[in-house]
Design a protein around this nucleic acid. Sequence first.
DNA 1: TATACGATCACCT
DNA 2: GGTGATCGTATAC
Length: 212
Amino acid sequence: MVLHSLCNIAYTHVVMKTILQKNFFARNTHIVARQMLGKTLVRKTNDTIYTGIITEVEAYIGEDDLACHASKGRTKRTEIMYGDPGHAYVYLIYGMYHCLNVVTEGKEFPAAVLIRAVEPTVGIADMIRNRNTSNIHNLTTGPGKLCQAMDVTLDANGVDMTHAFPLYIENEKEIPEGTIHATTRIGVAYAKHCANYPWRYYIKDSPFISKK
DNA sequence: TATACGATCACCT
DNA sequence: GGTGATCGTATAC
C-alpha cells in the first residue's frame, strides 16, 4: 500500500508539466520577459509537435513606447495587445516573415513580449524541413526564423496560449538572474529615444541567440 | 484609391 | 559591409 502510494507520487512528479497561466502574463512586462527565458515554447499542429527553450525575448510596452506597434494607438492590428494577457500576437513583417509575441499586463493596457529565439528541442527534423537548412544554430535564432521553423503563421494570431493546443509555454525551473543579459532592442532605430531602452533580454552565453 | 514602410532574412561584395 | 524580396497596415490624398 505504502509502496503503491510512493509509486504514484513519483509517477505524478515525472509527468507533471504545467502550462503558464494568465496570472503569469498579467504582470509587469519586464518581469514576464525575463521569466520567460528558460521556459519551453510548445507548438502543436495537427500532425507535428515542435518545442524549444526560450533564449531571447524583447519587451514592448504601451503607447508611449515608440517601438511598440501600439504607439500608433488602438487599431485592428494592435487590438489583441489591448486584450487578455496570455494571448498570442502574431504579425507579418516585411511581407514574408512572422513574429510571435505573448500579450502581457492587464486588459486595456497594450504590451507584449516578442520571442526572438529558442533552442530547438523537439521536432527538429520538421524544423529542418520547414527552414531548408540543417544548421541547428540557424533554425530558430531569430523571430522570423523560429516562426518558420515551428510553423507559426497568422492563423495563430489571437490564440489563447494558456491552453494545451495549439500554442503554449510550459513552466520550467527559473534560471538564475545572473545569467540574464539586457541590451537595446533589435531593428527599432526609428523609435527615437525608445530605441535606447535596454528591453532585450537573453540567456548569456547561449549559442541560440539572434545577434551578438 | 495610392503610397510608404517595416520588431527580417538570405545572399551578395 | 550592403541590398532585394514581398505584402499587410497605417496614413495621406
